[in-house]
Amino acid sequence: MMLTVENVTCARGGMPVLSGVSFALDAGQALVLRGPNGCGKTTLLRTLAGLQSPLAGSVTFPEDEGAYASHADGIKAQLSVTENLSFWADVHGRPMPDDVFTSFDLDDLRDRLAGTLSAGQKRRLGLARLGVIGRKVLFLDEPTVSLDGFSVRMFADFLRDKHLAQGGVAVIATHIDLGLDAPEMDLTPFKADHTATGGSDEAFL
């Protein structure tokens, strides 16, 4: 198993939002999270990525293999496309793969400053980071916001052919159909009720 999630309860602002979330992904598998706005998809993904600790349960994946991507791309407007990507490659101590520009249709934009890109181009640049850092376990929060249909298919191709095919796993929160052969999980049944314990207010109730 690449990623095992057992009975996780996660909290937003000290309040439990989801409880009892469990699933396991083998190398090459992806999972699509569904649920209405505010049901805790982002919170769950941040918890899985290790940015916040779960109130209960455990998340296990190989050490130093997790990567998180959200609406905010971490793109510096004053740096060029190549500089932005090579920075993340350097931070992760990896060589810069050359095919990443082709995979994300950034070939013509290599030397453009990121600040001059359109919203969709920026988003592609943000996603291209995932191709650069070479992490196996991806936690993607609405990766396709502001992408056109063509780019969505391009990203899906990248996930399927470059990431999952090479033994990676991905947990994706999204509202659109990526065309991946991946199971979907609806988070609504996991909504934390008053029996969920561990909230920071608990001692005061």
Binding site: M15, H194, D201, E202, F204, L205
Partner: peptide, 8 residues
């Protein structure tokens, strides 16, 4: 406590 009760 008031805060906790309100959010509950």
């Amino acid at each position: 406590r008031i805060r906790a009760l309100e959010s509950r």
